[in-house]
Design a protein around this nucleic acid. Structure first.
Length: 221
DNA sequence: TGCCAGGCCCTCTTTAGGGCCTT
């Protein structure tokens, strides 16, 4: 059962909900704990429902990437050889990010790499992470799949046909996030589109979601 | 197209196992 204190916390922090940075990493593999590194970062900043800024940069991980990653991303070893090192790029990205909250598709993956790469340049993360995949499982339970590309097709979201590149994926994730907020607003017009509230939705069991919205509407409406 | 890891989530569950999703 939702506690009143939880809702109060959401309300207090809602002033940061107007701005989020949606990001996506391309990497050498799946696990920074096993030595994998970032090779590209893409991000867009959303302010009051509009994309206002973009960040994209390849980065040199200091070693060659596998043929699988070359094929998967279209990023070649030659492209990375001419790119600045991860530390330089991540320091620039930390300045771009500031203290904004973050959104990513399957955010636990991008969060692990962001924390690992920023730790190398001794930059903290001030914001919280929201996950578009977890939210989509709640908002679109009947979608054939909750992969990013599948959801883009399912919701007919804007895209340029490029997948598995950081800026393209972050832009599609941003459109997905905004689309979900619009659909939530249509379904529950009395519930504010707070970033912190969306985080609570992700943690709400699917079967109790209508009761969650009912409680949120009652408190905020 | 797969493997690596890890968190979430569902169910034939909770003293567990396996699918999904990210590169």
């Amino acid at each position: 059962m939702l506690e009143n204190a939880t809702i109060t916390e959401t309300s207090k922090r809602s002033d940061r909900a107007d701005t989020v940075v949606v990001l996506d990493f391309e990497t050498t593999g799946l696990s920074p704990l096993r030595g994998d590194r970032a090779i590209e970062i893409g991000a867009v900043r959303i302010v009051k429902g509009q994309i206002t800024e973009r960040f994209q940069q390849l980065m040199n991980p200091g070693r060659r990437i596998s043929s699988f990653i070359e094929d998967y991303t279209g990023i070649s070893n030659a492209m990375l050889a001419d790119s600045p090192p991860c530390e330089t790029v991540m320091a620039q990205f930390a300045d771009f990010l500031g203290e904004d909250n973050l959104v990513a598709h399957n955010a636990s993956f991008d969060q692990r790499f962001l924390e690992a790469e920023l730790a190398r340049v001794k930059k903290p993360i001030a914001g919280s992470f929201g996950c578009s995949m977890l939210l989509s499982r709640r908002i679109y339970p009947d979608a054939p799949s909750h992969r990013l590309g599948s959801l883009v097709a399912y919701k007919k979201l804007p895209n340029d046909g490029v997948f598995h590149r950081a800026l393209a994926d972050s832009e599609m994730t941003a459109h997905l996030w905004l689309n979900m907020l619009e659909d939530i607003a249509k379904r529950y017009p009395n519930v504010p589109q707070s970033f912190m509230l969306m985080q609570k939705v992700m943690k709400t069991p699917k079967g109790s979601l209508p009761r969650f919205w009912e409680a949120a509407s009652a408190w905020f409406g």
